[in-house]
Each structure stands twice: as C-alpha cells, then as structure tokens.
C-alpha cells in the first residue's frame, strides 16, 4: 500500500493531467452535432494511436539479443502505425465528402 501511495506522490503531475483531460474530453465532445459522430469516433480512434510512441520506445530500447522484445516490439510498431495512419486517412475521407458538398451548396 505504501508503495502505491509513494507512486501516486511520485506521479502526481500525471494524475493531475488525467483528471484535467477527463474534463476536457467531456467538454469537447459535449457540443458535437450527431451528424459528425462517425467522423469524430474515427478521429478519436486515430488519436489514441498515440500508443505507437510507446511501441517505438519499446522497440528502440530492446537489446539486440532479446528476441521476444524485438519481435513483439516490431509487431507493436506495425499495429500502432496501422491505427494512426489508417485512422487519420479514414477520417479524412469521411470529412472530404462533407467539405465537397459545402462548396457546392
């Protein structure tokens, strides 16, 4: 228990960020018209692809003889990139159609 408490103390900045981000996330979403729900979900999906940074760190830290870390890290980088790139491209495709129609009307 003590170790958990000391960990909380050591990470208090992070915990503040977590709490503030929860409020920011809720505030930002609260005003979205339902028209944009699908692109928004897709955009949010791309943003959590930020997990790729963790994958890069894992990969970059892996020792050359640690095959488990190398293989899993490599897979993680591929999957993370898929999430980021695919997510942003799909979102852009959806939104492209909205803007095309905007110009015409």
């Amino acid at each position: 228990m003590n170790s958990v408490l000391s960990w909380i103390t050591a990470n208090q900045q992070m915990i503040y960020i977590v709490i503030l981000m929860i409020f920011v996330g809720i505030e930002v979403i609260g005003r979205v018209p339902s028209v944009l729900h699908t692109p928004l979900m897709s955009g949010a999906n791309a943003i959590h692809g930020v997990v790729i940074i963790g994958a890069i760190i894992v990969m970059g830290k892996a020792e050359h003889d640690n095959y488990l870390a190398l293989i899993l890290g490599f897979l993680a980088v591929i999957l993370g990139t898929l999430n980021v790139v695919g997510g942003f491209v799909v979102t852009d495709r959806m939104l492209e159609m909205f803007s095309k129609k905007k110009k015409k009307s």
């Binding site: 996330g25 809720i26 949010a44």
Partner: peptide
C-alpha cells in the same frame, strides 16, 4: 484510449497520457 494512457504512465510520457485519456473520456461520453 485508456490502454494508451497506461503507456503514458509507464514511460512518463505526457503526450500519450493526454491523447489516451482525452479519447477515453470523449469515447465514454459518446
């Protein structure tokens, strides 16, 4: 999103934490 934020904690990485929790909160509300 929350899983990504866990990575943020692990590496003391604020951008992972911000992005992850932002999506976690927004996704839950959605």
């Amino acid at each position: 999103g929350v899983a990504a934020a866990c990575g943020g904690f692990l590496y003391d990485n604020k951008v992972m934490l911000t992005g992850g929790i932002l999506v976690g909160a927004a996704g839950t509300l959605l």
